[in-house]
Amino acid sequence: MTALDTRPAIDRLPTAAWAMAWLFLAGQVCALVVRGPSSSGAPWILASIALTVVVVRWVADGVLRGRTVRLVAVWVLISAAASVQLVDLLIGPADVERVLSLGFSAAQLAALAAYCSTGYFQACRAGRAAPRSVLAPLLLIAVASGFLGGLTEPAAPVSSSTVLRVGL
């Protein structure tokens, strides 16, 4: 058996990557159901959607390919979100949105950790490029997640109707 035979295949994504993608999408669906669509003006909603789709897709591509800066940014953002949500849940009332948000953040952290421990991820970190066709389905889920993130009402009340935000 040669060294080539023992290398992990990168022609299909690991289950942890799929779990991560679906968890992010499900989190955005729940946020949209709980908070509703944004009350900003139509041009701002469209701009928020477009900007969020571009950012989320770019970050997702970097995470799936094991790019250090984007991967670290996601670790930091999800960890910070989970920490803030935990504190918020401990000092505030335990409503459905708070419990769901913390649950999704914890599950997303677990899925990210599982993904980072796969042979696929290690192969990407070692410089083996995954074919675009392998990443395409998950990047479509990322685009859908970004679309919903840009469409959803912000968690904190906003006093102006001109709000441009990136809902990650």
Rank of each mutant, 00 (worst) to 15 (best):
Y115C: 07
A106V: 15
R128Q: 12
S79L: 08
V72Y: 13
L77M: 11
Q85D: 15
R70P: 13
Q85T: 12
V69H: 01
D88N: 14
A106H: 03
V72E: 12
V96R: 11
L90K: 01
Y120T: 03
F104E: 02
Q122W: 02
L112W: 07
W75A: 02
C124R: 07
L89M: 08
V63P: 11
R65S: 08
I91S: 04
Y115T: 07
S105G: 14
S79T: 11
F104Q: 01
V96P: 01
V63E: 10
F104G: 00
S101A: 14
G127V: 03
T118I: 10
V87M: 00
G66H: 01
V69N: 03
R125G: 05
L102A: 04
A111K: 09
V87Q: 04
A73N: 11
R125Y: 00
V72R: 11
A73W: 12
V96A: 13
D88M: 10
S117Q: 12
V96N: 03
D88C: 02
G92D: 10
A94N: 08
T68R: 14
R65I: 01
A111E: 00
V74W: 03
F104P: 00
L102K: 04
Y115A: 08
A107E: 07
V87G: 02
R98Q: 07
A114V: 05
S101R: 05
A80H: 09
C124F: 06
G119Y: 05
S83Y: 05
I91A: 04
V99G: 02
R65F: 01
L71Y: 08
A94M: 12
L89H: 04
R125K: 11
V72T: 09
A110H: 13
T118Q: 02
L64P: 03
G119R: 02
L89Y: 04
A80M: 11
V74R: 02
R128N: 07
V69C: 03
S83E: 01
R125P: 01
V72S: 07
Q85F: 14
E97F: 12
G103V: 00
T68K: 10
R67G: 08
A73L: 14
F104A: 04
T68V: 13
L109A: 00
C116A: 15
S79C: 10
E97K: 00
A123P: 15
G119S: 07
G127Y: 01
A107F: 13
R70L: 15
R70Q: 14
L109N: 04
C124K: 02
A73E: 04
A114E: 12
G66R: 02
D95M: 11
V69Q: 04
S79M: 09
L100I: 14
A82R: 11
S117N: 10
Y120C: 00
V63N: 06
L112E: 00
A113W: 05
L86E: 06
